[in-house]
Amino acid sequence: MNFKNGQELEACCVETGKSIAQICIEREMDLTGWSEDTIRAEMRKDYDVMRQAVDRALKEELHSMGGLLGGEARKLKARLDAGPTVCGSLMSKAIGAAMGVMEVNASMGLIVAAPTAGSCGILPGSLLTTAEQFGWSDDQIIDALFVAGAIGLIITRNATVSGAEGGCQAETGSAAAMAAAGIVSALGGTPRQTLDAAATALKNVMGLVCDPIAGLVESPCQKRNALGAANALISAEMALAGIPSIIPFDEVVDAMYKVGKRMPMELRETALGGLAHTPTGCAICSRIYQ
């Protein structure tokens, strides 16, 4: 059981009548020789660490290594508790959780790279928050994570999830695509709708550069994780409403990769362009490394 791209994954589902999650699990069984239970238990560990990271940022005051972030999750929570929010409850919680996990990451806490450390807030922020809102069982959440994983595998194989290689579009775009797919699948979307959600999420941030101030995984990475969580939610909403992606998922992945390849190196994690190279960004950089 294997798939090279979205088209093959969808064909697998249609031919076998199995879900994307099941196909992803069976692929892993072939690869590792592990039982389904062992593989699900391994994903359960990832889920637990994601959950703990979300909770930790709400409970503790965290100090990042570079000092450019801290306390954002609690600020958003306070605003949500106090009264009406611009974003509404689910979206507000999702962006708060995404920013919180990035606080944990930047303060040398335990996270799950999903697909990278720099994008580690997006899956927990959007997918776990949606799971809570809809009351999914643990098994449903774990299935959704395998769907996210299947999308991540395809992007890694045919393009890149690395900011150094393809910019932020590759990193937070991929995380949002993975999360959107997981959400759509868990809420009963078809394989085609699942791929459409992933395609939409990637399209929404195509061209986004990677320009971390002082080269650290803090700013603007944390806010782009909030954006990624929101991107996952709106992409899922569109797909579930029956709004397709005009460009098929595999072609979007290919286009994203080509855009990444054409990005100058200054805009791929080197901190030599974009926000990192503004007067304020440069001043912060010299302050940190003085």
Binding site: C24, R27, E28, L31, T32, E42, M43, K45, D46, V49, S64, M65, V104, N105, A106, S107, M108, G109, L110, I111, V112, A113, A114, P115, T116, A117, G118, C120, L123, L145, F146, A148, G149, A150, G152, L153, T156, R157, V161, M178, L216, V217, E218
Partner: peptide, 16 residues
């Protein structure tokens, strides 16, 4: 490539 290379590793941040 394992699915746990994509969702994972579990790690101390901030950078893989």
């Amino acid at each position: 490539l394992s699915v746990f290379d994509v969702i994972g590793p579990r790690m101390i941040g901030p950078s893989s």
